[in-house]
């Protein structure tokens, strides 16, 4: 799966689960800092990423840089799949 496809999946997931329209959350929107996702949202996001992309996240992965935006999440998944 290439980065564009990953991004599309992540964007669709976040849009569906935050009930926010796609134009409200861009690829660079800080989804946690701006309050679109909370701690429950993070648990659900990790579950989604692990199930959808077959990756495993570790404690060390759990840093802001990996999850702050759709771009960051997609990059993170892409690196995990590489």
């Amino acid at each position: 799966m290439n980065i564009a496809e990953i991004k599309q999946n992540v964007q669709a997931y976040i849009s569906e689960n935050t009930f926010a329209s796609k134009d409200k959350i861009t690829e660079s929107t800080l989804v946690f800092k701006e309050g679109f996702l909370d701690s429950m949202g993070l648990v659900m996001l990790i579950t989604f990423l692990e199930e959808k992309f077959g990756i495993e996240t570790t404690d060390a992965d759990m840093v802001e840089e990996n999850f702050e935006s759709i771009n960051a999440i997609s990059e993170f998944v892409s690196k995990k799949l590489a």
Partner: peptide, 15 residues
């Protein structure tokens, strides 16, 4: 338990 990344972080804690 919550994973203590600290509240000084923009990423919420994981359970």
């Amino acid at each position: 338990v919550v994973k203590q990344r600290g509240l000084f972080n923009n990423l919420p804690p994981m359970f």
